[in-house]
Nucleic acid binder design. Sequence first.
RNA 1: GGUCCCGUAGCUCAGCUGGAUAGAGCAUCUCCCUUCUAAGGAGAGGGUCUUAGGUUCGAAUCCUAACGGGAUCACCA
Length: 639
Amino acid sequence: MNIEMQLKSKVIAAVKELYGQEINEKQAQVQITRKDLTGDFTIVVFPLLKISKKSPEETGKDIGEFIKNSEESVANYNVVKGFLNIELEADYWLNLINEITEDDDHGYKKADENSPLMMIEYSSPNTNKPLHLGHIRNNLLGYSLSRIAAANGNKVVKTNIVNDRGIHICKSMLAWKKWGEGITPESSGKKGDHLVGDFYVKFDKEYKTEIKNLINEKISEYPALKDVSDFSAEFSALKAKKKTKEGHNDEENEKFKACTELSKYAENNAPLILEAREMLRKWEAKDPEVYADWEMMNQWVYAGFDVSYKKLGVDFDKIYYESDTYTVGRDMVLEGLENDLFYRKDDGSVWCDLSDKGLDEKLLLRKDGTSVYMTQDMGTAKLRFDDYDIDKMVYVVGNEQDYHFQVLSLLLDKVGFKWGKGLVHFSYGMVELPEGKMKSREGTVVDADDLADAMVNTAREMSKELGKLDGYTDEEAEKIYKMIAMGALKYFILKVDPRKNMTFNPEESIDFNGNTGPFIQYTYARIQSIFRKAAELGIDVKEHTPTNVDVDEKENNLIRMVANFPNIVAEAGKVFSPAIIANFVYDLAKEYNQFYHDHPITFEEDDDKKTMRLVLSKTVGKTIKNAMWLLGIDVPSKM
RNA sequence: GGUCCCGUAGCUCAGCUGGAUAGAGCAUCUCCCUUCUAAGGAGAGGGUCUUAGGUUCGAAUCCUAACGGGAUCACCA
């Protein structure tokens, strides 16, 4: 039982003893005392006034006195404005530091064979385009969450589902076939995922042209649109007007309906999309030629992804491919159809009615029998639960898919999987550019590789300018540049509350000063430097600190923060938030730098004090390292 | 239109299981390297916490409504 819990139970005991009433844990509020006030923990007495029928001051004194007399580690107390501040014995914190210094895994709980197994899915790329900044957020969150989960005593399996089939893949393939002239990553010198992505963009461009032509061809068949000269302008104007308070009048409504219909017709009947659909059918029928092209192009993409993943420092324990799982999903749907869970429409498509849950009908198989996204996810889920004894399944997927996962959970439950309801959709916000959303098809994305490379270049320039790594070999220095660059990028992404959308301005480069990854890495390197200096001076660095030294406010703050780290890890695990770790480790580094600025360490003349500061520095360094590990960020011993 | 998310300093974000004077960084303006790493430290200016009600001893935090922004409701994934 930690000290906080002990104090809480003392408050409950005190109220019972003094005022003869039972209170619950919620009424016994114990919080960490504000930094600028005297004390270690604060008890809020306001909720207790009705029971005590005394003033806040008197109530605080009553309870303070009781706790002081009954709890050994409490030295004193004070009451300020109805807040009871508890002061612990001077050596309490130093004893705690001596415990922490022995534990290299400070803050981590270990898993054993009885620990729950948590599977975390993240990344989930499509093999028709390279990774962009949105994927970076996904990957970094997923990787960090898996470490946080592990540090909270879970067995963790990191998994990736590669969306390697579907109409979007066929689009890239078709464009490559038509316009690629046999180009390959080798012949072009281009990374495979980027090459394939280029053809995805090319497809979209040509497809849009076809849609436009088709609309012009057919527009005369729609009487409501006979006066319309510029279809797309008219359609967007109507869409915009629909959103206004005013809305559409009857004529506009007619027009809007016609526009929607015509636009849908063109999208579904453009020759390119028909060809792509045909290709998908052939692929599902394992047509040898289509299949061979598909395998070849996917290999290009995988080779590209491997490079990107390595750059980001993420990895997986088990990778699933949709080309393996979609048939499983289809079988599940067909089985559900036999059991009357789903139904078939006249055109042959298969649906599930979720209107009793307040949702719509959901398509599960197209009229041509091919699978959709939902079908695949059902199959993937089944395979995973067959493969592993999963206690908790977590999907790291953007919040634009909230609806999808709501449906998936209901569907899995419906087909009889007891874990269906327990799925966790870790829904994170989008990364937006100042001008709005990123769109792969339109090429308005921040490419993952480009961004990572730019970061390394900046780190290299900065380091060279500062001359910090003089004397290192190029190879060693390069390793540190990468570490710093990735530290900056990862911290930048992870410090933001994952649920919220975040803005990234490509014009303003990611900072290396202030509230950043390199600031924290720097603090760690600085601590290591102290120990190099200590060795140089021949100081015998002891394992433990004497517990009878005076500790000033800064030192005390640091100790309390380090001691609080396990609570932070638990909290981050509970709410799935690397941001909590990130903000904690920043505060810790900042506090340490302030301490460092005006406290001599190796030069301290009082030996006991010197030892205390060295031991304290060591535990701070260890805590920084452990916290950064949870974010997937490495820390250098020199920078 | 239905459902969901968001609105805190010029900008990017913390703080939100109600608690003491709302915090950082960036940007702007000062100051500090003949003691351990200046990617650091100290200071100044900058806020009706979108608005209006409500609950409460106490509201940035909880509730309701409005306003503003975003997502989603596809035979795309």
